[in-house]
Design a protein around this nucleic acid. Sequence first.
DNA 1: AGGTTACTTAACCAAAGAGTTAAAATGAGA
DNA 2: TCTCATTTTAACTCTTTGGTTAAGTAACCT
Lengths: 117, 117
Amino acid sequence: MRMDTDELSATFAALSDPTRRAILARLAMGETSVSELAEPFDMSLPAVSKHLKVLERAGLIARSRKAQSRPCRIEPNALKEIDEWLNLYRGFWEQSLDCLDTYLKELQAAEKPRDEA
Amino acid sequence: MRMDTDELSATFAALSDPTRRAILARLAMGETSVSELAEPFDMSLPAVSKHLKVLERAGLIARSRKAQSRPCRIEPNALKEIDEWLNLYRGFWEQSLDCLDTYLKELQAAEKPRDEA
DNA sequence: AGGTTACTTAACCAAAGAGTTAAAATGAGA
DNA sequence: TCTCATTTTAACTCTTTGGTTAAGTAACCT
């Protein structure tokens, strides 16, 4: 009875697991193989393989082939979409509007130092 | 056998449901009651109540009391932590460094229009 | 071909998630 | 106090998820 999961939901769901976030963190340092990715974890290789499939279906990683190895790398688009989704809410924790606006204000302030009280 | 869910995992998990993201979107327009939040959805009130509990436990919303009503509002911290987590990966989709840097470059470009080919 | 390395798929299980209806709590008002 | 309005809790179902082990596939090596 569950809705066919949309893209954003799949991405958030993939990121909701600490093992998968750790895998992404490792991949941030560069492309690597499944067994290398699995090495730090206290779980079977098939378990890691499943995590990779989840990350792949969420668009967070991509895999190629190199001999027997299936090297994985980060695919930025999904993360970028999370970031863009967050734009709807930045106003709630950034006292002022956005980073460019803040910069513009700082710029104005810097241009008129005589206006300081 | 599942690990006791850490904060970030709970937040991502909460955001992985479209109903809950829709609730957040509604709350971005202002504090409101449970029944008002439930109104657009084709599901029972207890279902919405559960979603709100998930959002609350993830630190994404907070609730107060006003007569029988339990108005909800967005709690920015959890979203902010997602944004900070994303900082680890921004380099992957921002060709240049960060927004301020980009602005500085545009600024330099604007200051030297004579350099255009 | 046969063996080895590197993964993936299949079959299974326990636990968590998202929904339901029915019943309980909580607060306001007659 | 009795009743209404608002929301939560309880009990139940069904599906999904995250792990397991065992078997299968794929590419390379001799």
